[in-house]
Simulated scan of single mutants.
Amino acid sequence: MKFTPPLALTFLIPTILAAKTTTVVVSSTPVPELSDVIWTSENTGFDAPKVSPINATTWDWWYFDATQSPTENDEQASVVVTFYTATASGFDLLAGYAAEGFTSLTLVEARVTWANGSSEAYIFNATEAVITAVDNGASGDFDEGADKASFTGAPDLSAYRVGLQSLLISGSVTIHSVAPAHYPCGPAEASKALEIAPHIGWANAIPGGNADVQLTVRGHPLEFTGVGYHDKNWGDQNFASNVGSWYWGHGRLGDYTVVWFDFLSAQRENYVSAYLSRDNEVIVSQCSGISVRPYGENDTYPPLISTGPPTGFDVKISLPEGGIFAFSAATKHIIAGGEEGFPYTRWSGTLRGDIEGEEVIGQAVLEQFNIFTE
């Protein structure tokens, strides 16, 4: 199947000629070498690889999701595609795939959730990945012979396209940004700290965007428009050794784009990040002034590996001029994890809040790591 970039991305070609370009080739196996890890931002390279080379305990990935806009029947389909350069010894949640024989360091997971909540995962066990950074954007080609997965980003981070090509799943997810990129504690500028927590980096290229999904899955069309998102994470140590629990999520509530992060390290040190924008203008981008807590069933805090999925989360963000931007994030479909005794759950869901005296409802993707045992 041949993929033709949509017209909205054709501006990539002339821009690339004048922009700073670097290319990294990542093999399918880790190297027995020390890795160089980037922890401070530069003028360019926002979405570029941050770890090179990848060894047995370092990891780097690019994450994309799209969630269906609300329908009259309250249905909600979603797609999540993650491009990994990591092994199970670096990122523990890949252990299940490794046990099934998907051992490539350059692994792509495409997980689709149909409107009724049924979920399926498709794996590209790529033989290598070629990552090209252009100005602040990046593109990646993950090839597994005839099967291919790719992402293509605009140099200014204004748009991304994910392409999938296999016998089981093919098509595209396109996201056009409506919210400025940011780092954990502030805007996308040079000399910013990139650690969301010790040994874990985060760069949020598209906090919110308009998504268009055009996929064929096992011969069936999965097509919808909605809210899109793209970020990347990386680390220089085994993931679980530095994480006790975390709550992360993003969504659209009326005209607002919101991204939240509330993290406890293995030593129970708290790290947070809050982002709020409207009409492409940032209102909040900071590593303070936010609280995320579970509510309803299984509202234990901090969550334990024995804790079941909660009903949802209450999120409160302190505004610069005073006051609180508060909303609830209710879980709807479990779209990854969620098994009893498993330390991770991802949901699609809904946001609900009171804005200027009017109740507003939107859609979201949210997740919980619950690694603590006691």
Rank of each mutant, 00 (worst) to 15 (best):
K316A: 14
T345M: 10
R346Y: 04
S306T: 13
G341W: 02
T350A: 03
A364M: 14
L304R: 11
D354Y: 02
L351F: 02
T300F: 12
R346S: 09
T300V: 15
T331D: 13
I317F: 00
I334N: 10
T311Q: 14
S348K: 04
G322W: 04
F327H: 02
T311S: 15
L304T: 11
I317Q: 01
A326R: 10
T300S: 13
P303C: 12
F327A: 01
E358G: 00
T350E: 09
G337K: 07
Q363L: 10
D354Q: 06
T331A: 15
S306C: 04
I305G: 07
G337A: 07
E359T: 05
E358K: 06
G323T: 07
N298V: 04
S348L: 02
E359P: 06
T345L: 11
A329S: 14
G337Y: 08
F325P: 01
L351T: 03
S328F: 08
A364D: 04
P302V: 11
P310R: 09
I355S: 00
H333K: 12
E356Q: 03
E297R: 13
S306Q: 05
Y301P: 00
S328K: 15
D314R: 13
E359D: 02
G362H: 01
N298T: 04
F313V: 08
T311C: 08
S348I: 02
T307S: 15
P310H: 11
P303S: 14
D354N: 09
I305Y: 10
I335D: 05
I305Q: 13
N298Q: 01
E339H: 09
G349H: 02
S328Q: 14
Y344D: 11
P302N: 09
S318E: 15
A329L: 08
N298R: 02
T311L: 09
I317P: 00
I335W: 07
P309K: 08
K316M: 12
T311F: 07
K316E: 15
L319T: 05
